[in-house]
Design a protein around this nucleic acid. Structure first.
Length: 438
RNA sequence: GGUCCUGUGGUGUAGGGGUUAACAUGCCAGUCUGUCACACUGGAGAUCGCGGGUCCAAAUCCCGUCGGGACCGCCA
């Protein structure tokens, strides 16, 4: 007999079925026992009267512990007076398939969510048993699916670039060094060079969803030393605006998918609706961004060539107020704030952009410099050793399409979507300067 | 990397020189005619992160150490 998931129980009223799940709660009264059983799709009340026929089951349940797993056969009834979903399951057999220890290290059902976040991460497998956390990873799955649908329709190829590198990939971030049969190698902190290689290979458009590693001792709510980066790169573009068009399209596709699939649960568990953000994402130049923040909010960031956390938040607020958009592109950053491979425009500014979502940077993108002489010149300006980049420069020697691309931080997006305090809560298993377990 | 904060039963907190170390929740046992955040009664559970110092007396004050967090910087 096949296990019926909790979400589907209403299709089986008055039929003999089998259910399985974790023991969520036990209420053992004088003449009746209630066991709330939970799987990832929902809960149901299992009701067992205390009588001669049920004696064996009664005995089992009286010593049952929370979070143990059970399988029961029986009949599901429509019972409007039961508060939990108006149904109840009356078993004819009840088996304990695994026994949980009595005392749990964290409060799994903690509806106030008060347990220390770090302790919850130590016991992540228990923490993840909640409906709330399940929904986060369901949303992640849907986001990736929506993006893939978009890319497939637009002739993208999925690539899997190597994560062990002989030369440090250049993205401004620090790299992890690793011993490799006596030689030093580096963990990829970006698929950047390989996406560009795919452009040189004539793959018109590519994407990759894969881990990247950054040796940055960053202690913030939105950094990790290992995270999943969504990268794409497209050919034959006229400017970085073509790259932004592409990103805007897949972001909207993602929100639409989320709205269609999980809006009810999202409302119930997070108390807000998916915002389709059905307006053009505003595109504000770096210079205008600085000017607007000064004029409207009387704030001046510390750095002239980049925007700081406060400025990100303020421009996010401005975009929401003025354009009703959670998203805002900030474009044409100064070269000082950007890597050497970003293409410069006639004003000496980069043909680049960041995408901010609810005041947090979720993307850096740009048109890439594909003309080898200029590319080398820019590398020299940044003080990079040309010898180590020889393999990269080779990509540009035999014809390469004008191209550009971006990296999208999926966890940062999810963090803001679900209003979590930290990226850790939307990462399956977080990796940071102080955490490499479990 | 810089600045600041924090460590007390399983969990979350209170207590800030002398307490039987308190409260909530969880756990165990019992009572309870169907509960639904069940209720009620009782019980177990803490060498107050670790080491040292001051003091008649330290969870409490001081020094050190270890763990953890927040914000900023760096980036996705």
């Amino acid at each position: 007999m096949k296990t019926i998931y909790m979400k589907d129980l209403a299709n089986y009223y008055n039929q003999e079925i089998e259910i399985s799940g974790f023991v969520d709660k036990i209420r053992d009264l004088q003449y009746v026992q209630f066991v709330i059983v939970r799987d990832s799709t929902g809960k149901v009340q299992v009701t067992i009267e205390k009588n001669d026929i049920n004696q064996a089951m009664n005995e089992l349940v009286s010593h049952l512990t929370k979070e143990s797993t059970i399988t029961a056969k029986g009949i599901i009834y429509d019972r409007p007076n039961v508060k939990l979903r108006g149904m109840e399951f009356v078993p004819s057999s009840f088996d304990i398939t695994s026994v949980s220890e009595e005392q749990l290290p964290i409060d799994v059902l903690d509806y106030t969510n008060a347990t220390d976040k770090e302790l919850r991460l130590d016991y992540r497998f228990l923490d993840l048993r909640t409906e709330r956390n399940y929904l986060i990873f369901k949303a992640q799955t849907l986001c990736e699916m929506a993006m893939r649908e978009y890319w497939l329709e637009n002739d993208f190829i999925e690539i899997h670039s190597p994560k062990i590198l002989g030369t440090a990939s250049e993205s401004g971030a620090e790299v992890f060094k690793m011993d490799y049969f006596g030689k030093t190698v580096y963990l990829a902190q970006s698929p950047q060079f390989y996406k560009q290689m795919a452009m040189a290979a004539g793959f018109n458009n590519v994407f990759e969803i894969a881990p990247v590693f950054r040796a940055e001792n960053s202690h913030t709510a939105y950094h990790a030393t290992e995270f999943t980066s969504v990268d794409c790169e497209i050919s034959w573009i006229k400017s970085h605006h073509d790259v932004m068009d592409m990103e805007e399209a897949f972001c909207k596709r993602m929100l639409l998918k989320l709205k269609t699939e999980i809006d009810d649960d999202y409302k119930r568990l997070f108390n807000k609706e998916i915002n389709l953000n059905d307006v053009p994402f505003p595109r504000i130049s770096f210079a205008d961004c600085k000017r607007i923040i000064q004029e409207k909010y009387h704030y001046t960031g510390e750095k002239a060539h980049d925007i700081d956390r406060r400025e990100e938040e303020l421009i996010g607020i401005y975009a929401k107020k003025t354009f009703k958009s959670d998203f805002v592109f900030v474009t044409e950053y100064p070269f000082a704030a950007r890597p050497f491979y970003h293409m410069l425009d006639e004003n000496g500014l980069t043909k680049s952009f960041d995408l901010l979502y609810c005041g947090v940077e979720i993307t850096t993108g740009a048109q890439r410099e594909h003309r080898l002489d200029i590319l080398k010149k820019q590398a020299v300006e940044k003080g990079l050793p040309l010898e180590s980049l020889e393999f990269y420069f080779n990509f540009f020697k035999y014809g390469v399409p004008p191209h550009g691309g971006l990296g999208f931080g999926l966890t940062r997006f999810l963090m803001k979507l679900f209003d979590t305090e930290s990226i850790r809560e939307v990462t399956l298993l977080y990796r940071g300067p102080n955490r490499v377990n479990p």
